[in-house]
Design a binder for these strands. Structure first.
Lengths: 176, 176
DNA sequence: CTCAGATAGTTGTCACGTCAACTACTGCCT
DNA sequence: AGGCAGTAGTTGACGTGACAACTATCTGAG
């Protein structure tokens, strides 16, 4: 009656949602601070580098980058701007389709992501993994994945009807 | 080797953390959109109203509000500014300690939080609860609470040594 | 009493991300 | 070919929150 939604939904479910918000806020703040002070990278910037490093061609179309980062197109533009200004990422034109711009990992970017690796790993360990058993992790991951799939399925910003047609995120070289 | 931290930590743990980030992003975006379009309230604004409504005295010191919202002092000031401008919250002076300002729920604020209640509940249901079993919820909540406690324990912005001394969030009337 | 240090809140300035409008390019349709 | 709808990316204006500096007040040591 005074704590929040209680009549139309289970109190536990509301609390679980609140806990998700709080845990996310606390954990990301801590991990981001550690990453920022050690490597000078924000979580978002690091995510870009990791995604690029994880891609076969070491590059991503801006569009696909926005998609995997769950970020707006303009947010992605500005994020890549910052990384490019710092020399960690390079923009490459696509010769097959001149509307397309690739964000590619520079060698400095590769070094940065490698350097961040162990720092981030230990930050995650301290703020996250450390507090959970293997079983907790497995269950948590299962629940989170189900949430993700349930919500990605419909109603998200991106995923226009043409999405399946875009095929692989990277194809056709940009500079070679 | 190319997906992210893999040598110093279990891959599953890194993935679980990634899933936490993604699930949070997707779910809060969806829920916030629904709340915003139906009630004109952001999630943060709603949180303020819920906290105030949940308080015994229907009021909170700015300081304590910042604390429970996991927000900076200035962020809280501006959040309350917006709500006050819209008439949902009133600032009250504390006569016992004139440094202190209370944020108090106005009657319009009470109506707003009641109105938002069912809308938010169904949004949470659709984007969150719906995808999880009772057992999932219980386990998830347990894990999240453990994460929260593990991280709140030390190293957070607030919680200066004087924290326990501040006692109850509200005491001494503000206007009566 | 008085002054130094701590505490509560607000304000200036900035970083980051959003939406909407814009440019540039592609590709279909006639 | 010409034109137009659709797509990729960038830019302008803005909202929100953070940090640091500031004001005002309280408290305790002398």
């Amino acid at each position: 009656m005074k704590e929040g939604p209680g009549s139309t939904m289970n109190q536990d479910r509301f609390q679980a949602w609140m806990n998700l918000l709080q845990a996310h806020a606390v954990i990301t703040t801590r991990i981001e601070n550690e990453l920022e002070t050690s490597c000078g990278l924000s979580l978002a910037e690091h995510q870009v580098l990791v995604r690029l490093a994880g891609s076969v061609e070491r590059r991503f179309r801006m569009y696909d980058l926005a998609d995997v980062l769950l970020l707006s197109k303009s947010g992605t533009t500005r994020l890549v701007d910052r990384l490019e200004k710092r020399g960690l990422v390079t923009r490459l034109l696509c010769e097959g389709d001149r509307r397309v711009v690739f964000a590619a990992l520079s060698s400095a970017g590769e070094r940065a992501v490698e350097e961040a690796h162990s720092i981030l790993a230990s930050a995650i360990e301290r703020s996250f993994s450390r507090h959970l058993s293997d079983e907790d992790i497995a269950t948590l991951r299962g629940s989170l994945r189900r949430l993700l799939e349930g919500n990605e399925a419909w109603a998200d910003h991106r995923c226009s009807p043409s999405y399946p047609a875009r095929a692989a995120p990277s194809r056709r070289a940009g500079s070679s």
